[in-house]
Design a protein around this nucleic acid. Structure first.
Lengths: 146, 146
DNA sequence: ATCATATAATTGATATATCAATTATATTTA
DNA sequence: TAAATATAATTGATATATCAATTATATGAT
């Protein structure tokens, strides 16, 4: 079987780019906010726009499973960025609220994220971004529909 | 600050596509080989082509850090896919050898991986793959050189 | 050769990933 | 309505991710 090594495939290139972006973004966040990961930051951003999200819904948005999300929110509650309260309309799901401490983070975070996105996409045209999205979507669809 | 949500960015699309590929690939591997992850499979493929790789070098190829690689190889040794032996030329690094059990896996793995790659890239032209690589490389470079 | 520095691998601590099983509550169906 | 089924979240077990500190060995400079 004549198989090229994983390092020579497009998947390697995809992994590499997203991992470098994450490393870069995390570094810039850590410089300004201590003890805050990208994923935790994203949870805050999502909850800020959509306060009624359940843990399960947040999990999907940040590509985690329910178990990971339970534990992730546990630590964010411990660190006092979030508060869990009961949801009387559906007692299976919690209401997740952002605390004042969490809101403070939300004042600092957006400019950093804006910088991360902007500088990592420097020199890339709108057209290229569209191409990128189109092709990656084909891969995604192939993997989910096959 | 007017920041679009993470789910609306190209980074979300990149994450999504690579995660779906991994899920798809893992599922197809698990159907044929029990107790074998994609990453462990890649370690076997790399070692098969380049038997002199150190743990550190393997780690870089599969985007792990040294600590993760130590533990990953621990479990692969436990499962008898690999064997650690001393490297007399440089006693800081091990020689990692593939066992007979590991070699058996290497007979089963390539056709599965070939199928994974082929079907996930179905309908995507060579030209599109080149575009994809070029654009992703720009992102990677922006993140590492900034 | 000696000492300072660099490198490969390990370990500890904590967080996250993943799967399967479980609990509590809602919803659907007979 | 009662029973079956579905859903949200949790928990346990194990693997992996990440950072900092440590150990053992190599390499370089004086």
């Amino acid at each position: 079987m004549n198989l090229s090594l994983p390092s020579e495939t497009i998947f390697h290139v995809i992994e590499s780019s997203i991992k470098e972006y994450r490393k870069f973004a995390q570094k810039n966040i850590s410089e300004k906010i201590k003890d805050m990961t990208i994923d935790q930051g994203m949870v805050l951003l999502f909850l800020n726009e959509h306060p009624d999200l359940s843990q399960k819904e947040i999990a999907e948005l940040v590509f985690k499973d329910n178990a990971s999300m339970t534990r992730m929110i546990n630590t964010m509650v411990q660190k006092k960025h979030l508060k869990r309260s009961m949801n009387p309309k559906d007692r299976r799901r919690y209401k997740i609220e952002i605390t004042n401490k969490g809101k403070k983070v939300l004042e600092t975070l957006p400019p950093i994220i804006h910088y991360n996105r902007k500088s990592s996409l420097k020199g890339i045209t709108k057209n290229e971004l569209n191409q990128l999205e189109t092709i990656l979507d084909k891969i995604r669809t192939n993997c989910t529909k096959t």
